[in-house]
């Protein structure tokens, strides 16, 4: 486990050196300030749209960060040829993969916490507040969704280049978030092979939409039952384990050729 933590620490240091996070934070701050400065028919005192747009931006930026960080970890080691020195150490490929995932997930979660903190400050400056338990659940499920996303991008990057892995992860994540929840509605108008195909997609792809509690936090609907949160934690852990297993299967016998350009 210690070896995994060392790898995870390297991921943290890499992100802090690259400045992606600072750019996203400044962008989020700028956009939130712009939201506050908007003139809404001369009205004041509205705060829900700031929560809504702020959380949407936090979701968007955390997805961008999760996919870009996770998809570049292994291809980058290969391009820099540091993969050889890493694999020469007393470290299994499984530990390397898990350490990379742990680092990518934890650093993205930390960045997302900063996004949330910034949003809370802006909302408070506007005179509003989030219901604490609902916001905690929103953050927890958001983090679990990011865990699945980083595992997906990392698994894809074991067999694809960084850009290909990132592109495939975006497609998979967007399909899971936008299309999969609509399948039961589509099925009302489909029969036969097409209906079966849609059903397979419905069960085979992860349900990222279940990890989105933004509307509850924005419209003050209150927290969801603890049993549902526990179910979703279990569901996400199963998916993360499955994706990391697939990644490990793709990575464990992968041959690296010196001088191969990525």
């Amino acid at each position: 486990m210690n070896r995994c933590l060392v790898i995870a620490r390297m991921v943290w240091l890499d992100l802090l050196r690259r400045k992606d996070l600072y750019v996203l934070l400044i962008l989020l701050g700028g956009l939130l300030l712009a939201l506050l400065s908007l003139n809404v028919f001369g009205l004041g005192g509205m705060v829900r749209y700031v929560k809504d747009a702020g959380l949407l931006l936090a979701w968007l930026f955390s997805w961008i960060l999760a996919i870009s960080v996770a998809s570049r970890q292994l291809p980058q080691e290969e391009t820099r040829r540091t993969i050889y020195s890493l694999l020469a150490k007393p470290l299994t490929r499984g530990e390397l993969l898990f350490g990379k995932w742990l680092g990518a997930w934890s650093v993205v979660c930390a960045a997302t916490s900063l996004f949330y903190l910034l949003i809370m400050l802006v909302v408070a400056a506007r005179g509003g507040r989030f219901e604490p338990l609902t916001l905690a659940q929103t953050g927890l499920l958001h983090a679990l969704g990011l865990g699945m996303l980083t595992a997906l991008a990392l698994a894809l990057s074991t067999r694809a280049t960084q850009s290909a892995a990132a592109a495939l992860a975006y497609v998979g994540a967007l399909a899971s978030y936008l299309i999969v929840p609509q399948v039961p509605v589509f099925l009302a108008a489909e029969t036969g092979l097409r209906a079966n195909g849609l059903l397979i997609l419905y069960y085979a792809l992860p349900h990222l939409e279940l990890f989105d509690l933004r509307q509850r936090a924005v419209h003050d609907w209150g927290p969801v039952p603890g049993a549902l949160v526990a179910g979703l934690v279990l569901y996400s852990l199963v998916w993360i384990a499955l994706l990391l297993l697939l990644g490990w299967l793709g990575f464990r016998r992968k041959r690296f050729t010196r001088g191969a350009a990525r």
């Binding site: 039961p184 509605v185 589509f186 009302a188 509850r216």
Partner: peptide, 23 residues
């Protein structure tokens, strides 16, 4: 009040029951 206008689904499953609790 934050409730989206959704169409009627063809079937109900565990994920949908979860989604209905969430939203």
């Amino acid at each position: 009040g934050g409730v989206a206008n959704s169409s009627r689904p063809a079937f109900r499953h565990l994920f949908q029951r979860w989604a209905e609790v969430i939203a």
